[in-house]
């Protein structure tokens, strides 16, 4: 039997205070690992007005979050990973005295991986990044992870009492808790330590979103490559009909056809949506590394020998400028008809 434990969840949110998509999945995974213990949210406030609102607290309550620790920082910018790590380390130490803390869960992003690395050094925890499964087996945290460009599956046990895990979006299906809670908000000020003060955030420019879902956590992603020749309208149209996000290959971002943040792949964003549609994408290994773990893969390419067809559930050999608009029109007609 596994003893109930505390699990901390870093609650990513937008500058406007809305939950970022994987929060539900993280809290669901956290409940399983807490084994009837408590799931506690950590809300790092980026400015004095940044606090979880009623809607956020209701959403977290539905997910079974017992408390939300709202962290403010003194002496360093709260948007730096060292401050986030320090806050999590301090909370971990304090809560551990009440009840053993078993895990700290974060959504997989470059920023959160930095916080995870720092936390591992500060707490002696084992760290797993980009996990796509999370379970408690005989009291041990066990993670699943897809590696080598999505070609291998591994299971990995964390041998330390505390596990720090970053979880990929779309990996664990979100589900409400059996019993909803009314999370209490606890205020905590963190006095930045020397490491946290060592880095100055000179500026941070938030990118305005397109109104489309967030690329990293979207359920549907339509990707355009060199084959678009810079015209993303067909890709965008299909993405919008499907309520999906728009992604790109590095060729497309390097050409400046779309922002760098849209790049999918080994050196861009790693995605595993339920549905990936690639148009004018050859399927180079660097690109596959960031999308091969997707649920269903569809490719549209006019070259029957394009490597992406090797990993596509459905491959259509054709011109993306006719295939995509036809698909979009068909789906729209079905919806209206």
């Amino acid at each position: 039997m596994s003893t109930p434990a505390t699990v901390l969840v870093l609650v990513d949110h937008t500058p406007a205070g809305a939950l970022r998509a994987p929060a539900e999945e993280l809290c669901t995974a956290a409940r399983a690992v807490a084994a009837a213990g408590s799931v506690e949210g950590v809300w790092v406030a980026t400015d004095p007005d940044d606090r979880p609102g009623d809607a956020v607290l209701a959403a977290l309550g539905a997910l079974g979050v017992a408390r939300v620790h709202r962290v403010t920082a003194v002496g360093a910018d709260p948007r730096t990973s060292a401050v986030v790590a320090q806050a999590l380390a301090e909370l971990h130490a304090e809560l551990h005295a009440e009840r053993p803390a078993r895990a700290v869960l974060l959504a997989s992003s470059f920023e959160n991986k930095e916080a995870a690395a720092r936390l591992a050094v500060r707490t002696g925890a084992g760290v797993v990044t980009d996990a796509d499964d999370l379970a408690l087996e005989d009291g041990t945290v066990v993670t699943g992870k897809t590696v080598l460009a999505g070609t291998w599956t591994t299971r990995c046990a964390v041998r330390t009492p505390l596990a720090v895990v970053t979880l990929k979006a779309n990996a664990v299906p979100a589900a409400p808790a059996d019993v909803a809670t009314e999370p209490e908000v606890l205020e905590r000020a963190v006095e930045a330590d020397a490491t946290a003060r060592a880095v100055t955030l000179v500026d941070r420019v938030e990118r305005d979103t397109s109104g489309r879902p967030d690329l990293a956590s979207a359920h549907v992603v339509v990707v355009g490559g060199r084959g678009t020749e810079g015209d993303f309208s067909a890709v965008e149209e299909l993405a919008d009909v499907l309520g999906g996000a728009v992604g790109a290959t590095r060729v497309a971002t390097d050409e400046g056809w779309i922002g760098h943040d849209a790049q999918i792949g080994q050196t861009g964003v790693t995605i595993s949506p339920r549905l990936y549609i690639g148009a004018g994408v050859s399927g180079a290994v660097h690109h596959r590394g960031g999308m091969q773990a997707s649920g269903t893969v569809i490719a549209v390419n006019n070259d029957p020998d394009a490597p992406i067809f090797e990993i596509a559930d459905l491959g259509i050999v054709g011109d993306l400028f006719t295939v995509l608009p036809q698909a979009a029109a068909e789906l729209r007609a079905r919806r209206e008809g």
Binding site: I298, A312, D313, G315, P325, A327, E330
Partner: peptide
Amino acid sequence: RVLVQDTGDGGARL
């Protein structure tokens, strides 16, 4: 896995 040649109905098949 399915690989089809677009013969005018590729989008509809998608």
